[in-house]
Design a protein around this nucleic acid. Structure first.
Lengths: 221, 221, 221, 221
DNA sequence: TATGAATGAGTGTTCATTCAT
DNA sequence: TATGAATGAACACTCATTCAT
């Protein structure tokens, strides 16, 4: 039941055409789904996606055996794309603290409008375990840079920063229509709480239980 | 199938007969709905609630003309009950800052497991406008106390604090199963950012647009 | 299952009071049901009737084991009452033709506003077999008077007149709101078709089938 | 459970595949709905129609977004089909009066068994405004022909004739099972009342009120 | 006996997924 | 392979009737 790849090596010319077509379809679906999921969240009717993709239901389900598979694929893509951009931006920034705050700014400005994405933060922390790892690694970089520069509060973990970003994303999602820009105040407050001048130790988080969902960084420091 | 009688079997066989039984049913429904909504969110099948209440569909709909009415009732109740407790706790606390942090602690410890409640935070900020006002008033009290005591950062609004509490609730909801207690670190960070020692001015939030949902306190310097 | 009459001869004073109360209730129910059925037809919620009667569902169902029983009772009453009035009016009228037309006028003016009544015409021709017989007898009287006076078309049966009255009732029901008074034109047309000057014989109606509902006069003359 | 294939198995395996099958399903639904609505009226369970069509609920709702849409479609179809036939029959008839009576005959013979159709007469006069207009135009033709030939009573309006036909339909519906053919007598009586030899003027109908439902022709002397 | 709360099968409708073409 | 029609288990809600009090 996974994306059918049993390679029947007949009709090589048609084959290639098919492939290209299929690829184009796949792209169209992902594109449309991205828009629709972002606008209306993960509960939209699959038909809406099929319609906007210009493909039939069968084609959609050929590429993605399940609505959830499609959603996951779309989110992973967008997540990755966004992270890559963020990564580049961070590397181009001299000042570690500026890199950190820039990351938050960019995240909240661009990602937080995506309803499905924010839903996935609330549900599992990230679209997938791989996404979570990629993000955690990146955020850990930012964290380390700040820490080494003596700018970041002692004891702040990657998990803390991840959580902060998802939390602020949800705020943006909930308030940006009615109170645009208000989230910037909370971002500022949180970042100020992260500054090295805060010397009180942070509380230990409890031990991690058995069954863990891919919620991201567990504990590093 | 009759109304779960595992409670106080001490009361006399009732003088105002039906009223008592009906009230018991109503209570059973609210109780069951509370549990079910908390566990599975606002989208659960009404039948599930009926089943868990030990009543038929008709009874449920006699007491609550709509699923949404039931949900609203349940949430308002829980919200109010929680706020009352929080209010009392705050009044019993000398130190203003401790009162503020205590409020956050209690909120996140007790409310945040409730899926439907957190959904309502994400959707409209509170179960109802009345709830929002009650909460805003209370939080404003906490804020003023801290401000007067010179403990709270200048420029922090009630809306900021409301937003912080709802957003941290969502975080608790999302992470407390897998990383119990981790939210306490985020709370600490945010609270430290709220301390008076942070003297940088907070950014102005943009102008409020036309149609505002009842998302809570708007702005009160 | 019929209106409980098993005479337990205990407590004679209370008994009488009960009786009176019960009778009052029964009357209230019939009264309210009459109004409600007339206004909204036979499909109204029984609760509406109970509410307007000021009695509980149990009481209602004690007096009338079924919604249909209540409907039948109400309709029979109204039907009988109406027929009695019509009877008296007819007896007070010298001219046979005037008596006949007066009957139609009165019927259409007063009965045809009753939704449930007209529904019952459409369904079974009359609220009950007894009603049908009463009406048929009365109409037959009118018919005979006209016939004897040489005013009525030869061959017109009681059944014809009955059918005409139910048909015109339905017209009133359907049009009196939007085109008040239009039914009078059709009444006039039909009555003119009933005049003795129409000498063409009427078609024979086919043989009556096995299972006959109480639709009224079968064939006379 | 697949679409009842007891019909023409002669057509080639279809070139425009799905369309044909879907059309067959649509037809099956309309067919089944026609039967069921005619037998049991507009209140039948949609599931019954689905069952009798041999399709699932989803298919039914794919073709008709609402039960009412289905009902409307079915009734409009039957109404139109009947009117077309009636139209042709009328055009093929020399004698204007015969055309008029033939129309009534045909109407009452074919349409009046249809419970849903007659319900729609009682409710709004016709399945739709368009249907009503078509019918009114046609009846007006018949009326004019008769009038010009000096056969129709002066002052008879199209609305009068429309009303007569719908009301007689209801009569047929109510009595044809128990007293088949009796309606023909009533029809004859009414038609005789419509003859030109009736010279008494018809009563004016009152002024038309504000909100009129599509009950058919309004007034055309 | 009167009350009105409780019952639960039934209603119109939706939507993720399958499958014939 | 692409299509979109078909599926049917859910869903929220109603209402004639019963039954505990």
């Amino acid at each position: 039941m996974t994306s059918a790849d049993q390679s029947t090596p007949t009709q090589p010319p048609a084959k290639r055409a098919r492939r290209a077509d299929a690829e184009r379809n796949r792209a169209a679906i992902i594109e449309a789904a991205g828009v629709v999921f972002a606008e209306r969240g993960g509960t939209v009717d699959v038909r809406e996606i099929a319609r906007r993709s210009g493909v039939g239901m069968g084609t959609l389900y050929r590429h993605f055996p399940t609505k959830d598979d499609l959603l996951a694929t779309v989110l992973e893509r967008e997540f990755t794309c966004w992270l890559t951009t963020a990564h580049q931006a961070a590397e181009a920034t001299e000042d570690p603290w500026e890199a950190l705050t820039g990351f938050f700014e960019q995240t909240l400005t661009h990602q937080a409008r995506n309803r499905a994405m924010v839903e996935s933060y609330a549900a599992t922390g990230a679209p997938s375990r791989a996404c979570a790892q990629y993000r955690d690694a990146f955020i850990d970089e930012l964290r380390t840079r700040c820490l080494n520069a003596g700018l970041l509060r002692a004891g702040v973990t990657t998990a803390d920063l991840v959580l902060l970003s998802t939390s602020l994303s949800q705020i943006v999602q909930a308030t940006d229509d009615s109170h645009p820009g208000q989230w910037r105040r909370l971002l500022r407050i949180s970042l100020d709480g992260l500054r090295a001048r805060n010397t009180e130790p942070l509380p230990e988080s409890g031990p991690e239980p058995e069954s863990v969902r891919h919620v991201g960084a567990s504990a590093n420091d």
